[in-house]
Computed example of a mutant assay.
Amino acid sequence: MAGEADRAEAHDHDRGQSVTAANERRIRLVFIFTTTYAAIQAAGGWFSGSLALIADSGHMVSDAAALLLALIAYRVARRPADGTRTYGFHRVRVLAALANGATLLLLVVWIAWEAVQRINAPGEVLAGPMLAVAVVGLLVNVAGAYLLWSGNASDSNLRGALLHVLGDLVGSVGAIAAAIGIMLTGWALLDPLLSVLVAGLVVRSAWTLVSDSLRVLLQATPRGVDATQAETGIRSLPGVAEAGHFHAWTLADETIVATVHVSARPDADPLALPPVVSDWLKGRYGIEHVTVQVDPLGQLVSRGD
């Protein structure tokens, strides 16, 4: 291989997500339920004086945002790439997730501050209205969980939405327990204490959104993928003499792209390497879109990017 480098590429262009109309309808219905109840819960928390309900409404908003992102994912999957956006519009939902997570972290700061104030000076909590709103929330979350549970279990969007709704269900059970506790004991401190617990759930969801979004936007190596180990594994493949300049990044939540340079052994066909490397990366790391460049033997320096 003298003169110009002999380059070959192996591509798997199926970057879209599976779009199921029935699953999209399920998520849309649960999104409407969740958003409506979040508004009712916030109003009920303000009326009853329950910080726990207000905090849980923030949790519901975070889950409604996650459901909205799942709906966006279905729509984005239908939009084709063009000459300017060759990867389509996958990053739109990443930006939305980052904004959502940052807003929720600010909400948590307010909830924690208000909870401290109420622990130091407990206020009156109307346990009856608080219980009524919490029971409605439980029914809404049970209905939403049933809708999502009955969908296609292989749909990652649907599974993620179900986990969020189950978290809301636990929050509703906690609010019911706090309301009953206040009714039986008159101990209003149960409300701010529960609000702190719910705020902890919001922090977890919000921080996951922020950290995952930043990883994508900074084009960090996806979780579970180690560049050095990947290069070592590629070097062990038949016909591969050298491997280096491995890069992998995430387009959206689940679409991983990778590029790598390899050199062929003297007795190997350089054009046979790209599909071998691409298949190995797909099987080992689940990377669907791989570009393999074949360089002349001896000119490749590993990790010399």
Score class of each variant (00 low, 15 high):
219 Q>E: 14
200 G>K: 07
82 D>G: 03
214 L>Y: 00
38 A>F: 10
247 H>A: 02
267 D>C: 11
139 L>D: 00
253 D>M: 02
122 P>N: 05
35 T>N: 01
167 G>P: 05
111 I>K: 07
93 R>P: 00
214 L>M: 10
253 D>S: 13
38 A>Y: 02
263 S>W: 03
158 L>K: 01
253 D>A: 11
126 L>S: 12
79 R>M: 06
226 D>E: 03
207 W>D: 05
28 R>C: 07
247 H>I: 00
66 A>M: 14
191 D>L: 03
184 L>P: 00
94 V>N: 02
284 R>Q: 13
305 D>C: 02
138 L>Q: 13
285 Y>S: 00
249 W>E: 04
283 G>C: 05
265 R>L: 15
36 T>G: 15
48 S>R: 00
151 G>L: 08
28 R>E: 15
93 R>I: 11
3 G>C: 13
34 T>E: 11
128 G>M: 12
90 H>L: 05
147 L>Q: 13
144 G>H: 03
295 D>G: 09
106 L>M: 12
290 V>I: 06
177 A>F: 08
113 W>C: 12
12 D>R: 13
272 A>Q: 10
44 G>D: 04
133 V>K: 02
52 A>E: 07
268 A>C: 09
31 F>T: 14
81 A>I: 00
8 A>C: 10
57 S>K: 01
24 E>P: 04
71 L>Y: 04
128 G>D: 14
61 V>Y: 09
113 W>K: 14
240 V>Y: 00
204 R>G: 07
98 L>Q: 08
117 Q>G: 08
40 I>C: 08
